[in-house]
Structures are given as structure tokens and as C-alpha cells.
């Protein structure tokens, strides 16, 4: 058992199977809102959201494919 984000589904030699009836582990991003933020801070948060959304879509696609099976 390993978290989804730690798995490369395209890695040869392994096959990824999702666990059923397991609530997903949600990862969020947190920062101090009363702290000064450099411009790179906002850029980094946007990038993190972008890649997180990609992962979510990838996971959704895998779920749909698994449902079709």
C-alpha cells in the first residue's frame, strides 16, 4: 500500500490497483495569510494547483476505466 502520489502508473514492472472503500487522502496547501508573500509564492501556489488538478484528472480517468472493466 502506497499513496497514489508516490506511484508512477507507467513504471514498468508494477501494476497499480486502487483500494476500494478507502477514503482518499486529501492533500491541500496551506500558508500563513498574515505573512508577507513574495511574488514567487503566488506563482508556486498556482503551479501546485495546476499539477494537482492534473493528478486528480488522471486519477479520475483511472477510476472511470476501472468502472468500465
Amino acid at each position: 500500500m502506497i499513496s497514489w502520489l508516490s506511484v508512477d502508473p507507467h513504471r514498468p514492472g508494477i501494476r497499480v490497483r486502487r483500494l476500494a472503500y478507502v477514503s482518499p487522502r486529501v492533500v491541500g496547501i496551506a500558508w500563513h495569510r498574515d505573512r508577507y508573500r513574495i511574488p514567487a509564492h503566488r506563482a508556486f501556489i498556482d503551479l501546485a494547483r495546476t499539477y494537482a488538478l492534473r493528478e486528480a484528472r488522471l486519477l479520475s480517468g483511472m477510476s472511470a476505466a476501472r468502472g468500465q472493466e
Binding site: R49, A52, L59, S60
Partner: peptide
Amino acid sequence: DPLASGTDDLP
């Protein structure tokens, strides 16, 4: 919020 608007598996 993309982190909160994922698939059905995500809350």
C-alpha cells in the same frame, strides 16, 4: 478550487 473540485472520490 481545483483541490476541492476533483473527482467523485475526492470530497
